[in-house]
C-alpha cells in the first residue's frame, strides 16, 4: 500500500515511497538521513522532533509522512545554507545549550517566532519555546540569547 510522495526538504525536491502509517520523524531520520530532529517522547510533549512544515513548526512525531506530499519541510539543516544564522551565533555566545539534545527543536521554534515578530517581549519568547523541553539550562540562557539578538 505504499504511495509516492513529493515534497521540498530543505530546498531540495524529494521523491520517495511511504506507507500511509509511516511517521514523518522516522522517515526524515531513517530514510532520508536527516538527523537533527530527535525523538524525545514520541507523543508531542517534548518538542525535540520539531520541524517546519510550510513555515510553521510542527511535531514531526505527530505527522504522517504522507501528509507532507506537495508541501515544504525545513529542518535545522535547512536554515544554515549560508552558515550559522545570527540566532545560532547568539545561542553560542550565551552558552544557551548544555547537552544540546533540545537545541535543533528550540532553534526552529525561536526562528519561527522571530519570523513572525522580530521584537518579541520576554513573555512572547517564553510562550514560543514553551513546547521545547530542556532539562539542562533552566531556559534563561536561551531566552537571554533571543533577547540579545532582538536588541
Amino acid at each position: 500500500m505504499k504511495k509516492e510522495i513529493n515534497f521540498i526538504l530543505n530546498g531540495e525536491k524529494v521523491n520517495l515511497e511511504v506507507a500511509p502509517g509511516e511517521i514523518l520523524l522516522e522517515v526524515l531520520r531513517d530514510k532520508l538521513g536527516v538527523k537533527s530532529p530527535k525523538c524525545g517522547c514520541n507523543k508531542g510533549d517534548c518538542g525535540t522532533c520539531t520541524v517546519m512544515l510550510n513555515g510553521k513548526t510542527v511535531r514531526s512525531c505527530l505527522v504522517l509522512a504522507i501528509e507532507v506530499n506537495d508541501q515544504e519541510v525545513v529542518t535545522l539543516e535547512g536554515i544554515m545554507h549560508s552558515g550559522l544564522t545570527p540566532l545560532q551565533e547568539s545561542f553560542l555566545k550565551h552558552n544557551s545549550f548544555q547537552c544540546g539534545f533540545c537545541a535543533p527543536g528550540m532553534i526552529l521554534s525561536a526562528t519561527e517566532l522571530l519570523g513572525k515578530n522580530p521584537k518579541p517581549e520576554k513573555r512572547e519568547i517564553q510562550e514560543a519555546i514553551a513546547g521545547n523541553l530542556c532539562r539542562c539550562t533552566g531556559y534563561s540562557p536561551v531566552i537571554d540569547a533571543i533577547i540579545d539578538l532582538t536588541n
Binding site: 508531542g44 511535531r59 510562550e127 514553551a130
Partner: peptide, 12 residues
C-alpha cells in the same frame, strides 16, 4: 487558544 498545548501543537 493560547492556552492549548504549545505552538508546535497549535500549528496543527
Amino acid at each position: 487558544s493560547r492556552t492549548v498545548a504549545s505552538v508546535g501543537i497549535r500549528n496543527r
